[in-house]
């Protein structure tokens, strides 16, 4: 009788062991070296660009994404992480951000390391036909490097992006930015109104921050002038309720395989 009792238990154990052994333990490698997170299209960690210029670039990049689905990103770092090549780091940042749509792989990352004076254009696999390595290198040599040598950072980046966008979508025309129209004439009533709203949003945002003391969540952020503590989120623009999506970046999971070019100035 006791044998009857023991046998099922033994069988059960064998069964469980067999199952457990076969299913095994899935080992998942955790990423040890964190890559730069992207909350917006332009991540100016070095505080290189004046806020107005950064804002303009963000809206250019957001417009390009909205209209064509190609996700171009810009990262400006005070210094590159040591012990990793520019190419490998750029690839990791671009993949982590997931620039471009999954399957189309139509993302691009322009990475700038200030201290090293290095530039990398990382081209998504799907765009390698339009932006060949030679073309990417040409943009660095002929547009970015000369502009950077004259410390025209925002202008160089903008011109380079427009050129790259032109190759990908020849029909794309960048919208006139508020800044450009301002230069042409005097401040319109609309601009004053916008500034007023911005001021209101900024102050309420600051009040929220005081309470929360945390970094704001990506989807609903509001433009905030750069302060040392808020630099990371300072380039973010609000995604307003209506159609105009401005600045909030969400990667589509595009793939990269190391295409593009490197250079310096």
């Amino acid at each position: 009788m006791s044998g009857v009792q023991r046998q099922p238990r033994f069988g059960l154990i064998v069964c469980l062991v067999a199952l457990g052994v076969f299913v095994g333990i899935g080992t998942v490698c955790a990423e040890s070296n964190p890559a730069l997170p992207f909350r917006t299209y332009l991540q100016d960690e070095a505080g290189l660009l004046p806020p107005s210029a950064a804002e303009e670039l963000v809206s250019l990049l957001a417009q390009f994404d909205d209209e064509t689905g190609n996700q171009f990103l810009v990262a400006i770092l005070p210094t590159l992480p040591p012990g990793e090549s520019l190419e490998l780091y750029a690839l990791r940042v671009a993949e982590k951000a997931g620039a471009g749509q999954k399957g189309k792989d139509n993302g691009l990352l322009l990475l700038i390391g200030l201290e090293e004076r290095l530039i990398r254009i990382e081209v998504g696999t799907g765009l390698e036909g339009q932006i060949t390595d030679g073309r990417a290198g040409r943009v660095i040599r002929q547009i970015i490097a000369p502009a950077f040598q004259q410390e025209n950072y925002a202008g160089g980046i903008r011109e380079a992006l427009v050129k790259l966008m032109e190759w990908v979508e020849p029909s794309f025309t960048p919208a006139q930015t508020a800044q450009e129209t301002d230069k042409a004439g005097e401040m319109g009533g609309l601009t004053i109104l916008l500034l007023f709203i911005a001021f209101f949003l900024i102050s309420s945002m600051y009040a929220r921050w005081e309470r929360r003391r945390g970094i704001p969540r990506p989807p609903r952020h509001v433009f905030v002038p750069p302060t040392s503590s808020a630099r990371r989120s300072s380039r973010s623009l609000s995604r307003s309720g209506s159609s105009s999506r401005r600045g909030g970046f969400r990667g589509g999971g595009g793939g990269f395989r190391g295409g593009g070019a490197s250079g310096g100035w």
């Binding site: 190419e87 390595d133 030679g134 990417a136 190391g258 295409g259 070019a261």
Partner: peptide, 20 residues
């Protein structure tokens, strides 16, 4: 300029190769 672009193509291919 032509040589510079060829070098970029080559460097890009090397880079893709090392990643592959």
């Amino acid at each position: 300029a032509r040589f510079a672009e060829l070098q970029d193509e080559l460097a890009g291919t090397e880079n893709r190769l090392s990643i592959a």
